[in-house]
């Protein structure tokens, strides 16, 4: 199959993957809390119900911006799999996330705005890592595309242990898991109500959910980049990483934004930065 076909497949299969992942997540989280939990397909039922509901908006630009959020999340995956330069993907990924911030910010209401600002803070926290990770992967493998990295004889994770470690930390932000779920939370008992989704309902909320599923699939694809010997190996690594995330999610409270920013930057600087520095020094 050509890379373009993978790209198209991503558009259709990533939501299925993300939704199932969310279903498993909710089930496992419930069991960790001693509850029975919802059916496995509950996220899909929820999405269906959200789409059926009356769509009420505070202003008319929210919907286009959220569509942009979904679209660019999907585009990031398509570009990644269809062989676009990895470092460029990091920028597109940030653009996709930015659309969510703008949608929430455009509402101009106290809670959505504070959520949007916090999302900007976590973008600021996570973005350096993704640029650095992509650059490091390119440096290690000498390739610049997804297929190229997968074809490389080097096992990236072995060369980039620090980046892998920082990835686990930063993925907590992107997967919206405690302790880093500061801009939104799956149940709204936080100081910002529902953070940046506070003023979104019905169809709007469905877009956010859908984009998050794409995002999860994208993170999985990133994990495959780190374990590039085979796709099943990458999937296994992602499953283990996700299980860890769920466990930590159920074992910590939500951090404050200052700690999120500081710890993520420190991890990026020390673990991935140190890793990249070593890589450059040794490859001389």
């Amino acid at each position: 199959m050509t890379p373009a076909v993978y790209g198209v497949l991503f558009v259709f299969l990533a939501p299925v993957f993300g939704g199932l992942l969310a279903g498993v997540d909710r089930r496992v989280s419930a069991r960790m809390q001693g509850r029975i939990g919802p059916p496995l397909l509950q996220p899909f039922y929820d999405l269906g119900k959200l789409l059926q509901k009356q769509a009420r908006q505070v202003n008319p630009v929210v919907e286009p911006l959220l569509l942009g959020h979904v679209f660019f999340m999907a585009v990031s995956g398509v570009l990644l799999l269809s062989g676009t330069d990895l470092i460029f993907i990091a920028f597109v990924f940030a653009l996709a996330a930015l659309f969510l911030v703008l949608a929430a910010g455009s509402v101009n209401s106290p809670y959505s705005f504070a959520g949007a600002e916090r999302e900007l803070v976590v973008l600021l926290a996570s973005e350096p890592f993704f640029i650095l990770m992509m650059a490091a992967i390119c440096k290690v493998t000498g390739a610049s595309t997804y297929a190229g990295v997968l074809a490389s004889p080097q096992l990236v994770a072995v060369q980039l242990p620090g980046v892998l470690l920082a990835f686990l930390l930063v993925a907590t932000i992107k997967l919206r898991k405690s302790p880093f779920d500061i801009s939104t939370s799956h149940h709204p008992h936080q100081e910002l109500v529902s953070g940046l989704t506070t003023d979104m309902s019905g169809r709007m909320l469905a877009y956010v959910e859908l984009a998050h599923w794409y995002e999860s699939a994208l993170l999985c694809a990133f994990m495959v980049l780190l374990f590039n010997w085979s796709v099943p190996l990458g999937l296994l690594a992602f499953a283990i990483a996700y299980a860890l995330e769920v466990l930590v999610d159920n074992s910590t409270s939500r951090a404050k934004w200052q700690l999120v920013l500081r710890s993520t930057w420190a991890a990026t600087l020390v673990f991935s930065g140190g890793n990249v520095l070593a890589l450059f020094l040794l490859s001389r």
């Binding site: 900007l120 973008l123 600021l124 973005e127 350096p128 640029i131 650095l132 650059a135 930057w265 990249v276």
Partner: peptide, 13 residues
């Protein structure tokens, strides 16, 4: 590369 990574993200902010 580190400077580029952090600088670009600050720009985004």
């Amino acid at each position: 590369i580190l400077i580029m990574a952090f600088g670009s993200s600050l720009t985004l902010f």
